[in-house]
């Protein structure tokens, strides 16, 4: 019975959260501002994370002795609690956008680095041997064979990074950056009276996750990787 009541309250909060998006009833202007801020933090952090992780992932498959240290280090960074991470960064770079970008970039390293390395290592060794035996250079083997074939695994890593970045970006507003977290924290601070704000923030984050995922699917399909046609689907 109590569960039914709680479920009812949850659905009402969700409805109120959606009403928060309506002009006149809610504050669509604030929603848009925070969606934009949240999106910007996510996008910039992912650009940095990819720019660092993709080459790093490739590098550790070439220089084997770096493999373990790099995976361990990125793993350790991933386990730092997010509040502690922001807290540690503030004395170094202040508050706002910059520490948010640094923290979220660091959190994304593990998924992308590891998936890039695992994807490249997972390419059938017979294919690589054939490529070497035909006289392809290491560079063209990487660009024409290994990366295209590793693409599905690499993109799986990027997708994990996207979801965790969107979710963690809510915390950034606690440290002075503009993100949907602002709505959530306001809602919580109101002591249960403004669950509509909490729901509005969560709905916004879910919307962004869908948008980013769609964009990434589009990007993946436009690259010369493996498609369903090639694997016999």
């Amino acid at each position: 019975m109590e569960f039914i009541n709680n479920l009812g309250e949850f659905l009402i909060s969700l409805k109120d959260g959606l009403l928060y998006y309506l002009p006149g009833v809610g504050r669509p202007d604030r929603v848009l501002e925070f969606l934009w801020g949240h999106q910007l933090i996510t996008f910039v952090a992912l650009v940095f994370a990819n720019a660092i992780s993709l080459p790093l992932g490739v590098l550790i498959t070439r220089v084997r002795i770096l493999y373990d240290p790099v995976i361990k280090l990125t793993g350790m960074l991933y386990t730092v609690p997010s509040l502690a991470m922001f807290g540690l960064l503030i004395p170094l770079v202040g508050i706002g956008f910059t520490p948010s970008i640094i923290a979220l970039t660091l959190y994304s390293l593990l998924a992308i680095v590891r998936n890039t390395a695992v994807g490249i290592d997972g390419v059938d060794s017979a294919i690589i041997e054939a490529a070497r035996g035909m006289g392809m250079t290491r560079r063209s083997i990487l660009l024409q064979v290994e990366l295209p074939l590793a693409l599905p695994v690499i993109f799986a890593g990027i997708r994990i990074a996207v979801v965790s970045t969107i979710s963690l970006a809510t915390l950034a507003s606690y440290f002075g950056a503009s993100s949907l977290g602002k709505l959530i924290f306001e809602g919580i601070a109101a002591g249960g009276g403004r669950n509509d704000k909490v729901a509005a923030g969560a709905i916004g984050a879910a919307l962004l996750a869908i948008l980013f995922d769609t964009a990434i699917s589009k990007l993946e399909r436009s690259l010369p990787g493996v498609t369903s046609k090639q694997v016999g689907g």
Partner: peptide
């Protein structure tokens, strides 16, 4: 070594065709 290999045909047991290349593009590698 790269020049050498381009002048020697190489066939392996697992075949090692590139799955993301068409048959024509596989033959076209060298």
């Amino acid at each position: 070594q790269v020049e050498l290999r381009r002048g020697i045909g190489y066939v392996i047991q697992q075949i090692g065709l590139f799955p993301h290349f068409t048959i024509r593009d596989n033959i076209a590698v060298v």
